[in-house]
Simulated scan of single mutants.
Amino acid sequence: MQECVELSPFQEEKLLYYFKFLEPDGNNVLNATSRSRLMEKIFGFTGWAPQDRRAIQCLEVHDAFFEILFKKAEEKGGEHGTASLADWYAIWSHMLPGVKGMSGFPIWLQLMPKVLFEMIDRDYDDKICKEELAYFYHKLIASDKSPETLEKWTTEAFNQMTDNGKYRLDFDSFEQIFANFLIGRTPHGPGKYIFGCFNHESSIPFTLIERPADSDQ
């Protein structure tokens, strides 16, 4: 029997934000319409042409993601071609046990941080700046919030994600943060900020793993 873990309340809260990101219509069910609407929003946000490599990869990764979600939900007794919020939580409770980092997830999920990173990195300079993160929040995460709230949230998130500017928010760092989003059971760490979960404060700062200095050749 496949191992299962009970999600912590905070994990459920974080995953609810991700679910809402994937389900733009707000009806608490993922289906083919959700997938189409999500792609419309993403391509409208990024401006990617259909033949763009990034657009193709984004579509392929999300197609695989949705199809596997639907399959797993149906295996658990769900309706064909859909995944409810309860299905969503059940799927993650079976995927998370024993996972320590992104390499422990299926390949279709390992590709998701790269897709998200390329969406946010609008000038394609291999790092996310504060302005790019703010634009992502404004257009895809919290479009109903005031500019003042978005500025406050973005500053808080960017400071946490970069250890107050100590690190660049490049892909390696973003991948760690995405893993923290999926795996972390408590509010500690910056992963909660990816999809706009700003309701918890951590008393223990999260520090990115510092890379070893390059050795002299």
Rank of each mutant, 00 (worst) to 15 (best):
G189K: 03
L96C: 05
Y17C: 07
H200P: 01
R53S: 12
T46A: 06
S8D: 08
R168Q: 14
I68A: 00
A179F: 00
P9N: 12
G104S: 09
T82H: 04
I120Q: 09
R37V: 12
K114E: 10
V5C: 04
E74I: 08
E156Q: 13
D63Q: 12
D163P: 01
E151H: 01
T162P: 01
Q51H: 15
E40L: 02
A86H: 12
R211F: 03
F117T: 11
L85N: 02
A90G: 11
F198V: 10
H188S: 06
A179I: 02
V61K: 03
S36L: 10
K166F: 02
I107G: 01
R54S: 07
I209S: 08
W48C: 04
T149R: 13
Q110V: 09
N199L: 00
I120A: 02
A179P: 00
P212C: 12
A49V: 13
I177W: 06
R168H: 13
D172N: 09
E40N: 11
E3F: 07
L140F: 06
E79I: 15
F70N: 01
V115F: 01
S143Q: 12
Q11A: 06
Q2D: 13
V115Q: 02
Q51E: 15
H62L: 03
E23M: 03
R37Q: 14
K76Y: 11
T162D: 03
I68Q: 08
E6P: 00
E148H: 02
Y89W: 14
Q217K: 13
L133W: 06
F10M: 02
G78Y: 07
F45W: 12
I68R: 08
T207W: 13
P212M: 14
D123K: 14
F206V: 08
D63F: 04
C197Q: 03
Q176D: 12
V99N: 00
L111K: 09
W92K: 05
R35N: 05
T33M: 09
D125P: 02
